[in-house]
Nucleic acid binder design. Structure first.
Length: 909
RNA sequence: GGUCGCUUAGCUCAGUUGGUAGAGCACGUGCUUUACACGCAUGGGGUCGGGGGUUCGAGUCCCUCAGCGACCACCA
C-alpha cells in the first residue's frame, strides 16, 4: 500500500467503492499510530475534546455532524504541523442510562432495579456501558475520525471520578455546595429531582377551573381559579393583591375550604395580579414555587398532598392514594355535585415535563444538594463578554450571557444509582457531615467510625463539566494536562450550550484558573427531509451506519458540512448524500485518468518553463486561489463554503476544463510539452487531494497512496510524527503538509486569457446545441478578434478551441469588413464568432434571437452608463470599482455594436 | 411577555468587509466522446416575504409589518 508501489490505473474500478478502502485505511492509520498526539516541547499543540456521547445508545446523525466538524478541523491543524490531539470518550449519562437499563430489564422480564439492589444494578449497568461504548467507538471508526484512542476517556473512569470528587470537595469547602430544603422539580416517574434546565415546557390545552371558597362566617364566598384542582388539598391560604379594592375588606378573614373543610386565611400578597382570573389565588406552598415563596413570607403550613410517585398522600383525606390526575377528575366532579364549581374555562398553559421521560414534573419540597451559582457565573460571563472565549456564530453570545446573568442555583443531587455518588459522609454518632475525596474511615469531627455515605448520585453534567481537563489527568499535574490544556476549540450543538458549554466554562475557570478553550463553535441540529426533529417516537431517525453503508463515509461527511450555515439546522436529504457520493466518484475517476497517463512519466525529469502552456499556468493559479479561499474559510469555521470551493475547483475547473484541455498533449507521445502536462496533472491532483483530505479522508488517502512518490511533498513523514517517537512511519496523506498558497503560482494574466478562451469555446458549443448541428459534427468556425489582445489570445488557444469546440476548420482573423452571411453568431467582448450553418439558419428566428440579446445587452450597458454618469458614484465609489464598471460598459458597448451590425446584415437578406 | 433565527429558481439551500444573483436536485434538448451515465454538453427558470429608510449603489446595513421556527421567562 505504500506510495512506492504503483497500481496500474487500468486495474482500478471505474467506480469508487468506499467499502474497499474505508476499514482497511482506518486500520492502517491505527497501525501507524498517526493520531496519537505527540508532546513536542516548544511547539504549540492543537486540542479538541469530543462532546462525549451518552452510553445510552448509538450515535445518530447529529453525532456524525459533530464529529465530522471536529475531525475536519483536527485533520487540518495536524496537516499544518501542530501536535494535534482529538480526545475521544463517552459519558455515563446517569439518569438517561439508568432509565434505559431499567427498561431493558423490564422488557427482558428480568428483576427490577430494586430487586437487584444497588450493587447488582450497577453491575448490570456497567455491562450495558461496555456494550454501547463498544458500539459507539465502532461507529466513530466508521466515521473516520482521527481521535487518539490511547487517550480514550469515560466519565466514570477512576481518574475522572477522582476529578469529580475533587471538584465537589473544593466547592463544598468553599461553601459553594450546600444542602437546601426547597421547591425542586421532581419527576414522579423517574423518582428523582431535576435541575431547572432538565425541565422542558410544553404548551398544553387545559382548563381554568373556578371554585367557590365560602367565608367561614357565612357572609359569602370568594371565587378562586386554578389549573391544578388536585393541589387544592394542600391549600393553606387564599391570596389577594393588597391593593385590590374588591377584597381588601376580606383580608384576614377565614375561609372554609370546600374540599377539605379546613379553615384557611385570606392573605394579601403583592405577587397576586388583580387582572388575572378572579384576582384570588389559592396558595399551595408544597406544590408550587410561587406559593412556596408566599408560604415562606406568611409562615403558612406546607402540607404535602402529592407524593413522590404522583399519588395523593394520606393528607388528601378521601382522595388519598389516588393518582394526581384521577384526583383532579374526582375533585371537579365533587365540586360540581356539591355546588362549589363555578365554571370551567378553556385555558392554554405551559406544563413542565421531564426532559428524559416527558412525564409532567411535580414541583415539590425536598432536601437536595445545590451549587451556589452567583460566584461561579460572574467570571464565566466575563470570559465571554471580554472575548477571552469567542462563540461562533456570534449571536449565541447573547444567549449565553443572558443565561449566565440570570442563573439559578444548580440542583446537583439525583435520586439515582448510576453515577458519581455524592462524596458526603454522615456520622451516626455526632450527626455531623463532611465531604471527602477519599472514602473516609473515621469522622473528622468526633473520630467515630460509624459513617454512612449520602445515597444520592450527582447530576451527570457535574462530571462532564470537567471534561476538557479531567480527560487530560486533572486533578493530577500530568504532562498531558500541562501541554494540551487549555483546549483550543469546542465544537458542539447549540442545544447543550447551557447543559454543558456554560458549565465547562465556569468549572474550568474555578478549578484551573483558565478558560477551558478559546473558541466555541456551535452547530445546528439535523432534521429530517421535512424539517422535523429526528426522534424515536416519530421513527424518522436515520442511522449514520446505514448511510455509510450505502454511500460511503466521505459522502456522508461531505454532505453534512456542505450547503449549510454555521449554527443553522440542517435538513437531511438522501439526494444530498448522493450528490456527495457522486463527487467522490468524480474525483476517483479524474484520478484514475491522471494515473493512467502517468504510467510512463518520469517524475525525476524537469522541464523548461516554456513547456508549461497557458492551461498549466491557469490551473495552478486556480488551485492556488482555491487554497487561499479554503484557508480563510476554515479559519472562520465556514466549513460549507470551504467545501464548496474545493468541489467547484475539482469538478468545474480541474475535470471539466483542465483534463479535457490536456488530453491532446497526453495522447501525442511526440508532444514536447507532454512531460510538463503530466507533471502539472500529478502535482495539482496531489495538492487537491491534500486540500480535500480533512473533509473526505478515505477517498483522498486511497488515491494518494497510488500516486507516484515524487509528486508528493518531500516531507511526507512530518517532524511531529517523528518526534512522537513513531518508529514505523508509514506514508499517509493525513500527515502531509496542508497546501499553502504559492506566490509563484499566482497568475492573473493566465486567468484572464483562459477566461476568454473558455467563453469562446462555450459560445461555439452553444451554437452547436442551438442549431442542432449534432454533437459530433465537425464544424467550421470563424473567430474575429475585435481587439489586438484578443487575437493573440485566440491564436495562443487555437488548439484548445479546435479540440473542445470540435471544429473542422478554424479561422482566426482580425475583424473583417465583410462578415459571413449564413452563419450563426455569438458576440463576446472582443470576439465575434461565426459558424456557417448554410440552410440550417432560420433568418427570422436568428433576427429574433439576436434582437433579444441586443436588448439585454443594451439594458446592461445603459445601467452601467447611468452609473458612470452619476456624479455621486464617480465621487464616492472606490477607484477600482469605477474602473471595472468602465471596462464592463465598454465591453457591452462593443458587443452591442457587433450585434447590431450583424442584425443590420441579416435584415438585408 | 422577552430574545434570536428563517423567509432567495419547482424543491433543499449557499451568498461575512454593500458594487449588475449562485449550487445541488428536479425540468427541456442533444450525446454508447477510450476518467467518470454516480457521466458530458447545452438550455429554461428568481420584482432575493411586504413596506419604508440610509447610501452614488442594498439580497447584503437600519426601521417596520407579516408568516414560520427556536430558545428564555412566566401565567393562579
Amino acid at each position: 500500500m505504500s506510495g512506492e508501489q504503483m497500481t496500474p490505473a487500468t486495474e482500478l474500478a471505474s467506480r469508487y467503492d468506499p467499502k474497499q478502502v474505508e476499514d482497511e485505511f482506518y486500520q492502517y492509520w491505527m497501525d501507524a499510530k498517526l493520531y496519537q498526539a505527540p508532546i513536542v516541547e516548544g511547539k504549540q499543540p492543537f486540542t479538541i475534546v469530543i462532546p462525549p456521547p451518552n452510553v445510552t445508545g448509538t450515535l445518530h446523525l447529529g453525532h456524525a455532524l459533530n464529529n465530522t466538524m471536529i475531525d475536519i478541523l483536527i485533520r487540518w491543524k495536524r496537516m499544518q504541523g501542530y501536535p494535534t490531539l482529538y480526545v475521544p470518550g463517552t459519558d455515563h449519562a446517569g439518569l438517561a442510562t439508568q432509565i434505559r437499563v431499567e427498561e431493558d430489564l423490564r422488557k427482558s422480564g428480568g428483576p427490577t432495579r430494586h430487586e437487584l439492589g444497588r450493587e447488582g444494578f450497577l453491575a448490570k449497568t456497567w455491562e450495558w456501558k461496555e456494550k454501547y461504548q463498544g458500539t459507539i467507538n465502532g461507529q466513530l471508526r466508521k466515521l473516520g475520525v482521527s481521535v487518539d484512542w490511547s487517550r480514550e476517556a469515560f466519565t466514570m473512569d477512576a481518574n475522572l471520578s477522582k476529578a469529580v470528587r475533587s471538584f465537589f470537595v473544593q466547592l463544598y469547602n468553599k461553601g459553594l455546595i450546600y444542602q437546601g430544603t426547597r421547591i425542586t422539580h421532581w419527576c414522579p416517574k423517574d423518582q428523582t429531582a431535576l435541575s431547572d434546565i432538565e425541565v422542558e415546557y410544553e404548551e398544553k390545552d387545559s382548563n381554568l377551573w373556578h371554585f367557590r371558597y365560602p367565608l367561614e362566617d357565612g357572609t359569602g364566598y370568594i371565587e378562586v381559579a386554578t389549573t391544578r384542582p388536585e393541589t387544592m388539598l394542600g391549600d393553606t391560604a387564599v391570596a389577594v393583591n393588597p391593593e385590590d379594592a374588591r377584597y381588601t375588606h376580606l383580608v384576614g378573614k377565614m375561609l372554609r375550604h370546600p374540599a377539605t373543610g379546613k379553615l384557611i386565611p385570606i392573605i394579601a400578597d403583592g405577587y397576586v395580579e388583580k387582572e388575572f382570573g378572579t384576582g384570588c389565588v389559592k396558595v399551595t406552598p408544597f406544590h408550587d414555587p410561587n406559593d412556596f415563596e408566599m408560604g415562606m413570607r406568611h409562615h403558612l403550613e406546607m402540607p404535602q398532598v402529592i407524593g413522590l410517585k404522583g399519588e395523593i398522600t394520606e393528607l388528601g383525606g378521601k382522595y388519598a392514594g389516588m393518582d394526581r390526575y384521577e384526583c383532579r377528575k374526582r375533585i371537579v366532579a365533587d365540586a360540581e355535585a356539591e355546588g362549589w364549581l363555578v365554571k370551567i374555562e378553556p385555558h392554554k398553559h405551559s406544563v413542565g415535563t421531564c426532559a428524559r421521560c416527558s412525564t409532567v414534573v411535580e414541583p415539590l419540597i425536598s432536601k437536595q444538594w445545590y451549587v451556589k451559582m452567583a460566584p461561579l457565573a460572574a467570571p464565566a460571563a466575563k470570559a465571554v463578554e471580554s472575548g477571552e472565549i469567542k462563540i461562533v456564530p456570534e449571536r449565541f453570545t447573547k444567549v449565553y450571557l443572558h443565561w449566565m446573568d440570570n442563573i439559578q442555583d444548580w440542583c446537583i443531587s439525583r435520586q439515582i444509582w448510576w453515577g458519581h455518588r455524592i462524596p458526603v459522609w454522615y456520622c451516626d454518632d455526632c450527626g455531623k457531615q463532611h465531604a471527602a475525596e477519599v472514602d473516609p474511615t473515621t469522622c473528622p469531627h468526633c473520630g467515630s467510625t460509624k459513617l454512612h455515605q449520602d445515597e444520592d448520585a450527582l447530576d451527570t453534567w457535574f462530571s462532564s463539566a470537567l471534561w476538557p481537563f479531567s480527560t487530560l489527568g486533572w486533578p493530577d499535574k500530568t504532562k498531558d494536562l500541562d501541554y494540551f490544556y487549555p483546549n483550543d476549540v469546542l465544537i458542539t450543538g447549540y442545544d447543550i450550550l447551557f447543559f454543558w458549554v456554560a458549565r465547562m466554562i465556569f468549572s474550568g475557570i474555578e478549578l484551573t484558573e483558565k478558560t477551558p478553550f478559546h473558541t466555541v463553535v456551535l452547530h445546528g441540529l439535523i432534521r429530517d427531509s421535512q424539517g422535523r426533529k429526528m426522534s424515536k417516537s416519530l421513527g424518522n431517525g436515520i442511522d449514520p451506519l446505514d448511510v455509510i453503508d450505502k454511500y460511503g463515509t466521505d459522502a456522508l461527511r461531505f454532505m453534512l458540512v456542505t450547503g449549510s450555515t454555521p449554527g443553522n439546522d440542517i435538513r437531511f436529504q438522501m439526494d444530498k448524500v448522493e450528490a456527495a457520493r457522486n463527487f467522490a466518484n468524480k474525483l476517483w475517476n479524474a484520478s484514475r485518468f491522471v494515473l493512467m497517463n502517468l504510467e510512463d512519466w518520469d517524475p525525476a525529469d524537469a522541464y523548461p518553463e516554456g513547456d508549461y502552456n497557458l492551461t498549466d499556468r491557469w490551473i495552478r493559479h486556480r488551485f492556488n486561489e482555491t487554497v487561499k479561499a479554503v484557508d480563510r474559510l476554515l479559519g472562520e469555521y465556514q466549513y460549507g463554503e470551504a467545501a464548496r470551493a474545493i468541489y467547484d475547483f475539482i469538478w468545474s475547473e480541474f475535470c471539466d476544463w483542465y483534463i479535457e484541455l490536456v488530453k491532446p498533449r497526453l495522447y501525442n507521445k511526440e508532444d514536447a510539452s507532454r512531460g510538463a502536462a503530466q507533471e502539472t496533472l500529478a502535482i495539482v491532483l496531489e495538492g487537491t487531494l491534500r486540500l480535500l483530505h480533512p473533509f473526505m479522508p478515505f477517498v483522498t488517502e486511497a488515491i494518494w497512496q497510488k500516486l507516484p512518490a515524487q509528486s508528493k511533498p518531500v516531507e511526507i513523514a512530518p517532524e511531529i510524527a517523528k518526534q512522537a517517537g513513531l518508529t514505523e512511519l508509514q506514508p499517509s496523506i493525513a500527515v502531509t503538509p496542508y497546501p499553502e498558497a504559492l506566490g509563484a503560482w499566482e497568475d492573473n494574466e493566465a486567468a484572464n486569457r483562459m477566461g476568454l478562451l473558455v467563453d469562446s469555446i462555450k459560445a461555439l458549443r452553444s451554437i452547436r446545441a442551438e442549431f442542432r448541428l449534432g454533437e459530433h459534427a465537425k464544424i467550421e468556425a470563424i473567430l474575429m478578434a475585435t481587439t489586438p489582445d484578443s487575437q493573440a489570445i485566440l491564436e495562443e488557444g487555437r488548439s484548445f478551441i479546435e479540440t473542445l469546440g470540435k471544429t473542422a476548420s478554424l479561422t482566426i482573423q482580425a475583424a473583417a469588413e465583410v462578415k459571413p452571411e449564413n452563419a450563426a453568431t455569438a458576440v463576446l467582448a472582443g470576439i465575434e464568432i461565426y459558424v456557417p450553418v448554410g440552410g440550417l439558419i432560420d433568418i427570422p428566428k436568428e433576427i429574433e434571437r439576436l434582437t433579444k440579446e441586443a436588448n439585454a445587452t443594451e439594458a446592461d450597458m445603459t445601467k452601467l452608463k447611468n452609473k458612470l454618469g452619476n456624479e455621486g458614484f464617480l465621487a464616492k465609489a472606490k477607484p477600482e470599482v469605477i474602473e471595472k464598471t468602465r471596462e464592463e460598459a465598454t465591453a457591452f458597448e462593443e458587443k452591442l455594436t457587433s450585434i447590431n451590425a450583424r442584425l443590420a446584415m441579416l435584415r438585408k437578406l
